[in-house]
Design a protein around this nucleic acid. Structure first.
Length: 623
RNA sequence: GCCCAUGUAGCUCAGUCGGUAGAGCACGUCCUUGGUAAGGACGAGGUCACCGGUUCAAUCCCGGUCAUGGGCUCCA
């Protein structure tokens, strides 16, 4: 489940060593075209390697072809990779004369290499690697000769900031991949092609699940009838579980006063990730008369001189207000408020994509208000719920991340003793459930640590789905309290949790997980009736009515196509069950069952088949 | 937001070295009534993303905008 984290270079696998060496070959080839290119870092990555470089010329896809040809030559030259240990002074001297990440000395120093050198600790040995006439500052290791790189391909060029910091220089990043043999390379690309077929954006369109309309807005999902069925079934599933666990459901509006989010701290600290505030019409007119500029308005909003409404970026402040609307006793706790709450966030335009990264989404949200003593137990229940959800859907390839605060970052608020308690409670929770997890600093929410369930999509990107978070900060900011047994006012602790995370993202991942072939309980269309000819339509309608009355989502294909064509269409649309109805079935009162997966299953009585489907739905079978 | 690429019919894509466009699938009508992955004929469909420039003439060349895709950054 958990990926081994790439740490020290000595731990490089053979494949990583090969790919890292290929990055050097890439640099060698690029320098033959542009000797002045400044190289930064060129590590192996999950599916290949890249090398970052600064170069005035923009590398085009055509350039990649030419570079690839040149790389082939370097491989054919079968150059020896030679390790050279040097003193720090010598390395700095070479960097200053431009000889690192370079073919020979140059007029400009190797500035990135120089900077990297500065970061190497004094007790660490500094090494260079040379292949042919290309020398690079590099800890290695490498393959022995360039000829060992059996097969490679450059895949794309993108931009990246030096050391990932947007304040640094913007570099060009050339991506590629490499394998020991051409067979493996081909298999890799074939697998990518295969994965693309289950891309939720493609399937979402083909299966009419959802669409995103330019005029409605980027990152705003329209759930079409078939997608809506899936979403409704997922919501129903969650609601059932919540009822069992004594949650209560609430509804809250989509907008709220800016003041609310000032108290919570979402505004103005996260204002760049929110839709800008809505200003009351009267206020807007008055400001216009005063000749207020946009800059003034922004300033007034930030300073709190002008109020407005915010499209809600989170549900918690509203749920907090429901909590504080009554006097609470320790006897009432825990109070568990759940809502499928739609929130809006201004995600950066370059980050939007399909259903996995959107600007408006619905969380299967809930907030639990409890005493500190109840915290551990509640966290365990929440984590169990997430596991139940993922288990029911057969999703087993996820990793669990415990997101902690970064003590050096100003992003995190709240007392450190609260963070410690919260982190400890979460750690206990995952350990109690015996889940493998990794701890990552800086991955916490601003108000507290969290457990995230992270999955990968078809192109290997990671997405956070389910999340369980502990929060001491918001109860304090909103002055929440309950009356304890000793008649003192105590502060409750809050848990934020969402087993799906967001319905949009979860559905996107789910489409890919099932490759569009949803289990019966989720399938938008569960049964399609295929009469052999028009003569059998009236029998087909009888069957349709019988099925529809039981709540089974059934349709009838009345088209004048032959059964073969009807079957083909139903298969393409991934309908789990087809019922072929002709004279034989009509006479016997039966239905000929064909399943999406197993094909022709023979005839059974209609009621028998209804029972089978109802059972599969009831048990949420994964078939 | 940044870098690169892309934008032609509902979908997948051709095409025009500048003279306002084409295929397959889907869709509609008709014929066909066929037993487990494509029966046939005809037809309708496009301001070639949008705005501006160059030109006698722009879908094509140039500039800008928007959107999509891949990265980067960010992510409550």
């Amino acid at each position: 489940m958990a990926e081994p984290r790439k740490s020290d270079r000595q731990a490089m696998t053979d494949l990583e060593r090969l790919r890292h060496s290929c990055a050097h070959v890439l640099a060698t080839a690029i320098l033959r075209f542009w000797p002045g290119a400044q190289f930064a870092a060129g590590p192996p990555v999950e599916n290949g390697f890249y090398y970052d470089l600064e170069l005035e010329h923009r590398i085009t896809p055509e350039d990649l072809v030419a570079i690839e040809r040149e790389m082939k030559k370097v491989v054919e030259e079968n150059q020896l990779f030679e390790r050279i240990a040097v003193s720090r002074e010598e390395a700095i001297r070479l960097a200053n004369e431009g000889s690192l990440g370079s073919i020979g000395a140059r007029s400009e120093p190797s500035k990135f290499k120089l900077d990297i050198l500065q970061g190497i600790s004094p007790n660490e040995e500094i090494s260079l690697y040379r292949n042919g006439d290309f020398t690079d500052l590099c800890a290695g290791p490498h393959v022995t000769r360039t000829g060992e790189i059996g097969a490679f391909k450059l895949t794309s060029v993108a931009s990246a900031y030096y050391k990932g910091d947007p304040n640094n220089a913007q570099l060009q990043r050339v991506y590629g991949t490499a394998f020991k043999s051409p067979t493996e390379l081909d298999a890799y690309f074939a697998q990518i092609e295969e994965a693309k077929k289950r891309d939720h954006r493609k399937l979402g369109r083909e299966l009419n699940l959802f669409c995103i309309d330019e005029e409605v807005g980027p990152g705003l999902v329209l759930w079409k009838p078939k997608g809506a069925v899936i979403r409704r079934e997922l919501q129903r599933f969650i609601s059932e579980e919540l009822r069992k666990q004594l949650y209560t459901e609430v509804f809250t509006p989509h907008i709220g006063r800016l003041a609310l989010y000032r108290t919570s701290g979402h505004y103005p600290y996260y204002r760049e990730s929110q839709f800008p505030p809505l200003i009351e019409p009267e206020m807007l007119s008055r400001l216009a008369l005063e000749g207020c500029s946009c800059a003034d308005l922004a300033h007034k909003l930030e300073a709190g001189d002008v109020d407005g409404y915010l499209l809600k970026p989170m549900n918690c402040p509203m749920h907090i207000k429901i909590y504080s609307s009554e006097l609470r006793s320790y006897r009432d706790l825990p109070i568990r408020l759940a809502e499928f709450g739609t929130v809006y966030r201004w995600e950066q335009s370059g980050e939007l994509g399909g259903m996995t990264r959107v600007r408006g989404f619905t969380q299967d949200d809930a907030h639990i208000f409890c005493t500190e003593e109840q915290l551990t137990q509640e966290l365990q229940s929440c984590l169990q719920l997430v596991l139940k959800v993922l288990g029911t859907l057969g999703m087993h390839s996820y990793r669990v991340r415990l997101g902690l605060r970064d003590p050096n970052s100003a992003k995190f608020v709240g007392a450190s003793e609260h963070w410690d308690k919260a982190e400890e409670a979460l750690r206990k929770g995952v350990e109690f459930l015996n889940i493998a997890y990794t701890e990552e600093t800086g991955e916490g929410a601003f108000y507290g640590p969290k457990i995230d369930f992270v999955v990968r999509d078809v192109i290997g990107r990671e997405w956070q789905l389910g999340t369980v978070q502990v929060d001491y900060v918001l109860p304090q900011r909103f002055g929440l309290s309950y009356v304890a047994a000793d008649n003192t006012q105590r502060r409750p602790v809050m848990i934020h949790r969402a087993p799906f995370g967001s319905l949009e993202r979860f559905c996107g991942v789910l489409i890919e997980h099932f490759a569009g072939s949803f289990p019966v309980w989720l399938a938008p269309e569960q049964v399609r009736i295929l009469p052999i000819s028009e003569k059998h339509i009236s029998y087909a309608e009888t069957i349709l009515n019988l099925f529809s009355e039981t709540g089974i989502r059934t349709t009838l294909d009345k088209s004048s196509e032959k059964v073969g064509a009807k079957i083909r269409l139903a298969q393409q649309e991934k309908v789990p069950y087809m019922l072929v109805l002709g004279a034989r079935e009509e006479q016997a009162g039966q239905v000929a069952v064909r399943s999406r997966k197993a094909g022709d299953e023979g005839a059974v009585s209609a009621t028998q088949f209804v029972e089978r489907i109802l059972k599969e739905v009831e048990e949420r079978q994964l078939n």
